[in-house]
Design a protein around this nucleic acid. Structure first.
Length: 274
DNA sequence: CGTAGACCCTGCGCGC
DNA sequence: TGCGCGCAGGGTCTAC
């Protein structure tokens, strides 16, 4: 479901509700996520603590608590994090729930269980294996063509896989890598060793534009993405290539093609992208 | 070292 | 209607 824009939209929707509220207790109904949820530790670190801020790093949502604790949530492919009334009936696949002092409940639903919930000391986040190897934030203002060009030095392989590598730049998943390459006019299978500095610059700019636009449009709702209050996004209307195999390229009318790279679908225009 | 592929898991839409 | 197949927005591990 979620890439950087969806997590950022989610963060913004949750922040005004969560900050100032307090986690009273944590309920783990099914601990079998991508990493087993450690009930006792999560409860010990989170229960009774006030929420101070809600941040994002790549596709991770960070809920900072008083006392230097942080609850880390990753939604994987199918995760949804929503605020509901504390007494709302439990949904299928609602694996973890945070009961708040306000009477609200923050619930994680994740049918495929590729998600992740872990509590860490805030001060040790940077050293944690989940975060230690992460690359730059594309929207922090420092992200440039040179960032990509330098990271690509000495590497081979297709630019699309490179763009989706979180050790290079975080938050860019299958949809936004596809759309960024379309906007930059770069063929997804092109080797990173054969991209000029000018085109790296264009690609970095396209990534920033696409992610920013998607955030502004509330993210992409293909099946079921919704923010913390259940609102869908509408960037899917703006998708130029992703999921449009056989449909005309919005620029030139040529049929969009689908190929598979690293086991994932890629869509591109054979005329506009070289 | 870097890269390609398998794997984790459930649900949905499609063709037969 | 029912079944099997392919596919799905993520990340990690192993084998080359």
């Amino acid at each position: 479901m979620p890439e950087l824009p969806e997590i950022e939209v989610l963060r913004r929707s949750l922040e005004p509700h969560l900050v100032g509220d307090r986690i009273e207790r944590v309920e783990v109904r099914d601990a079998r996520l991508r990493e087993k949820v450690r009930r006792a530790e999560l409860s010990r670190r989170a229960s009774g603590r006030a929420i101070q801020s809600v941040r994002r790093r790549g596709k991770y949502l960070l809920i900072d608590l008083e006392g230097g604790q942080t609850v880390v949530v990753h939604l994987g492919m199918s995760g949804r994090l929503t605020l509901v009334a504390g007494a709302a009936p439990r949904e299928p696949h609602e694996h973890v729930a945070f009961y708040l002092r306000s009477g609200l409940r923050l619930r994680l639903r994740d049918p495929r269980r590729f998600g992740l919930v872990v509590a860490l000391a805030t001060a040790s986040l940077g050293a944690d294996p989940h975060f230690a190897g992460l690359g730059v934030e594309p929207l922090d203002g420092e992200f440039r063509g040179g960032t990509l060009r330098e990271a690509a030095a000495g590497r081979r392989g297709p630019v699309k896989s490179f763009l989706m590598d979180a050790a290079v730049v975080v938050g860019v998943g299958n949809i936004y890598a596809t759309e960024s390459l379309f906007r930059a006019g770069i063929h997804p299978a092109r080797s990173v060793a054969r991209i000029s500095p000018e085109r790296w610059e264009k690609l970095a700019g396209a990534v920033v534009e696409i992610l920013s636009q998607a955030i502004g449009e509330g993210g992409t709702t293909l099946n079921d993405f919704a923010d913390g209050e259940g609102r869908s996004g509408y960037f899917q209307v703006s998708l130029a290539a992703y999921g449009r195999a056989g449909a005309p390229c919005p620029t030139c009318g040529e049929a969009i093609r689908r190929i598979v790279q690293g086991g994932r679908s890629t869509y591109y225009c054979p005329r506009c992208q070289r």
